[in-house]
Design a binder for these strands. Structure first.
Lengths: 111, 111
DNA sequence: GAGCCATATGCCTGTCAAGGCATATTAGAG
DNA sequence: CTCTAATATGCCTTGACAGGCATATGGCTC
């Protein structure tokens, strides 16, 4: 099984997750909206299922996929300190712009 | 130039970003801390620089790398609605646990 | 400018994953 | 039970990319 980073690197898989954000879909609907071949969509769904990001409900012959509530834990964990840093940098920029009318240099170094 | 997802899929590059989070480093230091070959570290740094995530300061013969304040915009943008969804699901779970002592099912469907 | 250090680049190779295609599986209709 | 629709799986090919290695580049010392 692959890590969350690898899972979401693929644009088709991101697209699937985005579509499911709007509501559950069966495979055929996803095939139509993605413009991809059915077997490939099924393969992507397999990866997403193995990652715990989506689940399937059986409705007659169709499998209706939906998002689970499982977050991309590893991605979020890795991203957190970096996001915190970006937020601090942004705040610092805002404060700077508040106190002076000047534009600071484009390339900022770390504290 | 590659997208942010591709950039951070590589563990060595994530590691480099993590190390730079603690302070600037020259290439040789990174090589030591990563346990990777110098040319490969330089290549990763190239990718990170192209992505605007790191910058280099020239100090004599060394290049001292540091984080810029450029966020992984595309990753953050894609992640945002999904993170919002996870947060909502988490809140709903919390409220449920507050009101009842029971444990809800592990597999939740979307609203 | 010769030689040395630190870093970058180019080339080659192995690996891995995505897409195309054929086919297996499963469920329901009749 | 057969046929069909919906989905999944297996195999193959191709392209992207990371690592190993040799070598080029750039700055510094003497």
């Amino acid at each position: 099984m692959v890590d969350g980073f690898t899972v979401i690197t693929d644009p088709s898989r991101r697209r699937i997750l985005d579509l499911l954000l709007a509501g559950e879909r069966d495979v055929n609907e996803l095939v139509g909206e993605l413009g991809a071949a059915q077997p490939n969509v099924s393969k992507h769904l397999r990866v997403l299922r193995d990652a715990g990001l989506v689940g399937a409900r059986v409705d007659g012959p169709r499998r209706v996929y939906h998002l689970t509530n499982t977050p991309l834990a590893d991605v979020e964990a890795w991203l957190a300190p970096h996001r915190a840093r970006w937020a601090r940098a942004f705040d610092a920029l805002e404060r700077h712009l508040d106190s002076t009318g000047s534009t600071p240099s484009t390339e900022e170094n770390q504290p």
